[in-house]
């Protein structure tokens, strides 16, 4: 069986986003569909929209085209009216716990070992259900989110599976790497503290 395909090539913003949302909200689409985009800005905005709404997806780049495989199995995308808004039910793919990553390495002692442990921790995390609802990165932990980070691929995968990745903006400013953050989104102390307060469990690797 071939997966349904939504072709948004040659379409300018915000048309690709409209097509994506239409396919997401249409039960006839099936559990997954492929969205074809040939514009980097449209890709960035659609990915941001999907991540904001907890929709799992993965992106493959083929030449100048992006093929986004979007899952409809997660929570329903916002269906709100001007009159009222009901918060979505929790995502089925993630749990209610969160992970706080406060440094580039895991544990104390040798940093080479610590870096290996951190990579192993994140690689294993993606195999264990449920995934955490959020991962917060602060202090040295923000360095894991920049281009070239050894754990960038696994973080991208976690993000695409609906895990919200919050990166402390004061911390990236302090280290001068705000422009290099390649995964998750820049957040602030209030949001991170609110997330910690609301989490069922907090894991500090």
């Amino acid at each position: 069986m071939t997966m349904p395909t939504v072709d948004a090539r040659g379409q300018l913003c915000p048309k690709p986003l409209i097509l994506a949302k239409k396919a997401l909200n249409d039960p006839a689409t099936g559990p997954e569909f492929i969205l074809l985009i040939d514009n980097a800005t449209a890709r960035e905005n659609v990915e941001r929209f999907l991540a904001d709404n907890g929709v799992p997806f993965r992106t493959a780049q083929k030449g100048n085209e992006y093929h986004l495989t979007v899952s409809r199995s997660g929570k329903a995308v916002t269906a709100s009216t001007e009159e009222g808004y009901c918060p979505d039910s929790p995502a089925t793919t993630t749990g209610t716990h969160m992970v706080c990553i406060t440094g580039e390495t895991m544990g104390r002692g040798d940093d080479t070992l610590g870096a290996m442990l951190m990579k192993g921790f994140l690689d294993t995390m993606k195999e264990i259900e449920p995934l955490p609802r959020r991962i917060a990165f602060y202090n040295g932990g923000v360095k894991l989110t920049v281009a070239g980070s050894p754990v960038l691929p696994v973080l991208q995968e976690l993000g695409s599976r609906g895990v919200e990745l919050l990166v402390c903006g004061n911390c990236t400013d302090f280290y001068g790497i705000t422009g290099q953050v390649a995964v998750g989104r820049i957040s602030n102390g209030y949001e991170i503290l609110g997330a910690i307060t609301g989490a069922s469990k907090i894991i500090y690797p």
Partner: peptide
């Protein structure tokens, strides 16, 4: 906006 019409 609900339709997905969000300017870049």
């Amino acid at each position: 906006t609900e339709m997905g019409c969000i300017p870049g």
